[in-house]
Design a protein around this nucleic acid. Structure first.
Lengths: 197, 197
DNA sequence: CCTACCGATCGGTAGG
DNA sequence: CCTACCGATCGGTAGG
């Protein structure tokens, strides 16, 4: 949000978070300097430190807000979807949409969270685990025989979706909008047809 | 290979590469200093620069050697596997083994290669593309109807396997040895049962 | 003139 | 909220 005048403290905070997410996603957390960040925001470096205690606080807030939003989507689908077998396809679609709208934050979540200190990282991983559990429930609802392997299967599903966004930047030849149905197709047919034990 | 006396130039080079891969995988490329690296190798920093031109050269050599080894596995399976339908399951198994034996290099390949300059990164991505093409061929051989979507499917498969190694460090509760058959099961049943168009 | 290094320090920049 | 800085450490290289 370079030079875009953000009115008030909350707006400025949000603008800084958006610019940080973009720079962290682009160059990596460690390779992004606070000076670069200040310049991108049209602020001095000390001004930046007025809004956030340190560089890690930016990383933590970007990642936590994103993963909380993902958990909210899980809860929303659980509440809205009466038919348990329909929950998983809907979850997949909603997540791909969610990722697409928050690619910078998502990349920060998947690549940079490991550099946080234990306390902050644990908070985020705990929320992540709730998200995975939500997917695992949806898998078990789709086919109860898979209940014992629902969590590992959920993680493989996340592997596919996450990788999609590591590889495909917007505007590429194979974009994620075209790949989302392929992911759903592959996973659902695999889950429904694989051996029961 | 800290303090391990490596006899001769080639041995010392190999020891440095192994230590670099470990440190880059552990702390990230940007967050690993040449001083740390030198210390881990039991060398002075100038000695390190005797073996490698700069920090990027280390990253490039680790990633390129690993991806070349992956391509060699693809070629090996292609040559050894007479039955085309049996190729994909074998490829999956061989790759999980290969990844398991080179986790540090693999993490460097998947997370740090993007920081290389264009020339070096392109060299590595070109080899990666050959590997993906090998998997796509195996998918098309398994079920010719999928030929048109073989490459995207190959990438989803890599997504699952790569994510496995991002999440599971050796000795965890759910290790990759147990998950490899799950990956193969899910993918093969999905690929064989999904819609033909 | 080669190899395989050493102790010390270069010019710049990191987070704060 | 800026200019002006800090202690330390960065990647890389000097002479010997």
């Amino acid at each position: 949000m370079a030079r875009g005048r953000a009115s008030g403290y909350p707006g400025q905070r949000a603008a800084i978070l958006a610019a940080s997410a973009r720079l962290f996603a682009q160059h990596g957390f460690a390779a992004t300097s606070m000076n670069q960040l200040a310049q991108a925001c049209g602020l001095s470096k000390p001004a930046l430190y007025h809004y956030f205690a340190d560089k890690d606080a930016l990383l933590a807030e970007i990642a936590e807000a994103h993963v909380r939003q993902l958990l909210a989507v899980v809860r929303d689908v659980e509440a809205a979807c009466a038919d348990p077998a329909a929950r998983l396809p809907l979850l997949i679609r909603r997540f791909v949409e969610e990722y697409a709208g928050a690619q910078d934050a998502h990349r920060v979540l998947t690549e940079d969270v490991r550099f946080l200190d234990d306390a902050r990282r644990t908070r985020i991983l705990d929320i992540e685990r709730e998200v995975v559990a939500g997917f695992a429930d949806a898998i078990a609802a789709l086919r109860p025989q898979l209940a014992g392997r629902a969590k590992p299967l959920a993680m493989l599903l996340f592997g596919m979706i996450n990788w999609l966004f590591t590889w495909f930047r917007p505007g590429g030849r194979l974009d994620y909008a075209a790949l989302a149905p392929l992911v759903a197709d592959l996973f659902l047919h695999g889950a429904l047809n694989m051996g029961p034990e």
